[in-house]
Design a protein around this nucleic acid. Structure first.
Ligand code: MN
Ligand code: MN
Ligand code: ZN
Ligand code: ZN
Lengths: 124, 124
DNA sequence: GAAAAGATGCTTATGAATATCAAGAAACAG
DNA sequence: CTGTTTCTTGATATTCATAAGCATCTTTTC
């Protein structure tokens, strides 16, 4: 799978070089539009999928929401979703118990953890 | 918001009285078809949403998958998703660390945890 | 520079979930 | 019961996120 150097691909990559937080495809499109006004959403989806395959990006799936994407080089962490302002926050470190006590035969490759509640700005 | 007693609603409720595991709307439809051959998928979605509102059911959102539903009276637990056979297993107990070390001001209401890997039948 | 190989941007298709609405079934009043 | 009211249903249309198809435009290669 070759990889050509196009201005749309670079623009999308550049966005993630500045931003850490998880972005939705539409957020990526909006930001990239500043540089490439006629960029199509299909190209964004293609770029995001490729970058996930290349392990440049990682898909962030929050329960009940559509996928967002963040840099794959970030240290392992989990997310907090504020249901009031709908923002997503990165949390430091791993929140998974050490001793899982799984039944024999289950092999864990990955885990996802999402905390839901209200953030400091939306206290209540 | 009244609640009428219809055979379709009872059939759907009955399914969950026997089954614990999380079911997709289509799985519910298939099972209910045995009793009500002309049941429509829209009715299944309506029933599932109502039952979530009534807290009879709980939505189970696994990363990258569409929603499944399980009984809300089950003890708090999390899920294991086998990527080989695509089955979902209930895991006993809570897998969240006790000391989350969250920044000040974050209030956690809920949490979701999904383990991904291979199950005993699909070892590898 | 051409020609070849790929990427892009429209447009169309798919799948999950919801909305719409006429017709059917429950609840209710008598 | 029987008619009337009101809610529910099923079929269909609609929305939204994502992917596929394809003609055209760009990179790469020579
Ligand atoms: Mn993150
Ligand atoms: Mn479960
Ligand atoms: Zn972790
Ligand atoms: Zn838990």
């Amino acid at each position: 799978m070759p990889q050509r150097h196009t201005k749309q691909r670079s623009a999308i990559e550049h966005i993630f070089s500045r931003i850490e937080g998880p972005l939705s495809p539409n957020e990526v499109l909006e930001r990239a539009h500043e540089e490439i006004p006629n960029l199509g959403i299909a190209t964004v989806y293609r770029a995001l999928n490729d970058m996930v395959d290349e392990e440049t990006l990682r898909r962030v799936d929050l329960p009940g929401q559509s996928s967002r994407y963040e840099r794959a080089d970030l240290k392992h962490h989990h997310h907090f979703h504020c249901t009031k302002c709908d923002r997503v926050f990165d949390l430091d470190g791993c929140l998974l118990k050490h001793d899982l006590g799984l039944p024999k035969g289950f092999v864990v490759k990955e885990h996802d953890i999402t905390l839901t509640g209200s953030c400091p700005d939306c206290k209540g």
